[in-house]
Structures are given as structure tokens and as C-alpha cells.
């Protein structure tokens, strides 16, 4: 993935917001209210603002996971399955050991969720190294299978029969991450997200491992010629990418939902790709990029609550980001402008 100028990405963000306005004008009977709620909704009160920031937390983790894979020139399209598997593992650990003290339980649940998802992602890396199986397609297909298996676990063996929700039983309250901004769901998971953002940046930019991984991502044959063991930088980046996704799932469970609900992490995996692209795979820029995507989603949500548009408008805006962020149109426009004087 080559680096594109920042100005292009700012325009991408602008165009994706404009596309939202265009779709609202096309579909809504009360377009002015819908546009107003879309843009100002997330800032209307503490509740909306806190929830918006909170919904950026899973995107920070998935965005970091995708960034590290992109840095190694690997496509991990299995994010949806990995975050879901991480979440259900974290719940299973909390339900299996209901009596641990809070800190130990939280750590165990998060680590177990991360490792499960990491191993799941690592399969794609192993298949690529061993038999040259295309990792983009294999990660997507494995995740497709895992989504259904997790659905089965949530609605079958782990289902709470006393509740009509398609969900597991709630976890014990000593495992909850503390809330920061009641009545919203914002919790200390945010700090974990920021911590991992810094940690990933440290790993990628300052360690020998990160340096060799970036060289391998730039050109595998060059790296191999320089004596780097290239297969290492296929398998471990996949594991770390999956680990971060799983961690995101675990944080969503312990911080926000306190149980696993069928399909509750849907979209966070794809969102991670948009975040990584907007952040140009820089782990530190992942945080603002995740906030922007969370803002799109929250805006669409409030517009849906008060007017007649659906929240899928955020999905469409996200697709616009995908389309434009790697295309050269922004770059060309800016280059032309610079040439004129």
C-alpha cells in the first residue's frame, strides 16, 4: 500500500459526508431535519456523545489489526469472524469461571479472546507459507464459516433459556469495565484502545521486528535477499492482526454488552479496513479515523431515531470512503492545482 497525501484523505472524508447528504436529499421526506440530526445528533447530549466515542473502541482494535496486516502487505478479510470469535470466547471464559476476582477475570477473558482470534487468523498465514494459498480469500472464507459456528454457540450451548434474546447469559458484574460517562456506555475499554494504539505504533516503528516486517511488506524478495526470514512476517502479523480483532471483541463484551448477542459485532471487521485506509496504516492515526467512522454511524443512528432515514446510510458513506481513499482522483485534482501558478 503506497502512501497518499493527507489532503486527499481529508477530501475523501468530505466527499463521504456529502454523499450522505445527497442520499438523505434523495430518500428523506424531511431532508433538513435528517441532515441536521445526522451532523449534530452525536453532540446533542452526554448520552449520544459517550456512545459515539464508545462505538469507536472496537473500530480502534480492528483498525489496528488491519493496519498491521497491511504494513506486512497482507490482506486480512476475516475481521468479522475474528472479532466475533474473540467476543464469544471472552464471554465463555467469564461464564466458565464466575468466581475469579475482577482483574484476573478480565485479563483472562481478554487474553483468551485475543488468542482464539489470533490462532484463527494465523491459519491463513500458515496456509500461505506452506502451500501458497491466497490469504485474502482464505481469511474471508474461514471467517464466513466461523460466523455461523459462533451463531450456533450463542443460540445453542451458551444460550440463556430464561431470556427471549438470542444471547448468552450475562457475565458477573466484577468483570465489567468501569463506565466513564454515565448514562452512556463509554467505559475504560477506551483507554485499552489508546494503549494498544501506542503499543502497536511502538512495535511497528521502533523495534527490529517491526522494521523487518515493514521491509518484508515492501518487497518480500528484497527482504529475503537481505537475510530476513520472510515466512515469519506472514504468520506472526496474521496472528497479531487476529489477536487485536479478538481483543476488540472481548472489550466490547466486558465494557458495553456484558453478554454475547447474535450478530452484535457485525460490521466492526469491515469498518476496521476503512479505518486502516483512512489512517494510512499508521497506528496512531487509527484513533481519529475510528472516531470519524463512529461519528458516521452515530449520526446515521440519531437521524434514524428522529427522522425517516435508515442507518445503512452510514454503510453507504463507508463504501464511498473505500472507493475514494485509494483512487488517484484526489491526488490528480491537487496536483493540477499546484501546477497552475
Amino acid at each position: 500500500m503506497e502512501t497518499k497525501p493527507l489532503s486527499g484523505r481529508i477530501v475523501t472524508v468530505g466527499v463521504s459526508l456529502l454523499s450522505v447528504v445527497a442520499f438523505i436529499l434523495l430518500f428523506s421526506k424531511t431532508p433538513f431535519d435528517a441532515v441536521r440530526y445526522f451532523f449534530t445528533g452525536p453532540f446533542l447530549n452526554r448520552y449520544f456523545l459517550g456512545n459515539m466515542i464508545n462505538s469507536s473502541v472496537p473500530l480502534i482494535f480492528t483498525g489496528l489489526g488491519i493496519s498491521i496486516a497491511f504494513k506486512a502487505s497482507l490482506f486480512n478479510l476475516g475481521g468479522e469472524g475474528q472479532i466475533y470469535a474473540g467476543a464469544v470466547t471472552a464471554v465463555a471464559v467469564c461464564l466458565a469461571f464466575p468466581g475469579m476476582n475482577g482483574f484476573a477475570g478480565i485479563t483472562a477473558a481478554l487474553v483468551a479472546g485475543g488468542i482464539t482470534a489470533g490462532l484463527l487468523a494465523m491459519i491463513s498465514g500458515l496456509l500461505k507459507v506452506k502451500w501458497n494459498v491466497d490469504s485474502m480469500i482464505s481469511s474471508f472464507l474461514l471467517s464466513g464459516a466461523v460466523l455461523h459456528v459462533v451463531d450456533y454457540l450463542i443460540t445453542g450451548p451458551l444460550d440463556d433459556p430464561s431470556s427471549s434474546l438470542l444471547a448468552t447469559s450475562p457475565i458477573n458484574s466484577q468483570y465489567f469495565l468501569s463506565f466513564l460517562m454515565l448514562p452512556s456506555k463509554l467505559n475504560t475499554g477506551l483507554f485499552l484502545g489508546l494503549l494498544f494504539s501506542a503499543g502497536t505504533a511502538f512495535l511497528v516503528y521502533t523495534t527490529l521486528w517491526g522494521y523487518e516486517m515493514r521491509i518484508s511488506g515492501y518487497s518480500r524478495s528484497f527482504a529475503g535477499y537481505g537475510g530476513i526470514k520472510v515466512s515469519r512476517y506472514v504468520i506472526t502479523p496474521f496472528f497479531i492482526s487476529g489477536f487485536l480483532h479478538g481483543l476488540g471483541g472481548g472489550v466490547a463484551v466486558l465494557g458495553t454488552y456484558h453478554m454475547a448477542i447474535k450478530g452484535f459485532t457485525a460490521g466492526a471487521g469491515w469498518g476496521g479496513i476503512a479505518v486502516a485506509l483512512l489512517a494510512d496504516n499508521n497506528p496512531l492515526l487509527v484513533v481519529p479515523a475510528a472516531l470519524f467512522l463512529a461519528y458516521l454511524k452515530a449520526g446515521a443512528n440519531t437521524a434514524m431515531q428522529y427522522t425517516d432515514v435508515t442507518m445503512e446510510i452510514a454503510v453507504v458513506a463507508q463504501a464511498v470512503v473505500y472507493f475514494l481513499v485509494t483512487s488517484e482522483i484526489m491526488y490528480t485534482i491537487f496536483r493540477r492545482k499546484r501546477k497552475e501558478p
Binding site: F75, L77, M136, E312, A314, V316, Q318, V320, Y322, F323
Partner: peptide, 22 residues
């Protein structure tokens, strides 16, 4: 516009899903 073909492909899939729902 020379977008990355994989990213544009994901965009098309996502757009189709969002657009049909809308």
C-alpha cells in the same frame, strides 16, 4: 480513477448491501 482493485471490490460489496437495504 485507478483505485486499488481489492478495496474497490470491497466497496462495491458494501455499497450493494447498504444500498439494497436503503
Amino acid at each position: 480513477l485507478k483505485a486499488n482493485i481489492f478495496i474497490a471490490g470491497l466497496a462495491a460489496n458494501l455499497l450493494a448491501s447498504g444500498l439494497t437495504a436503503m
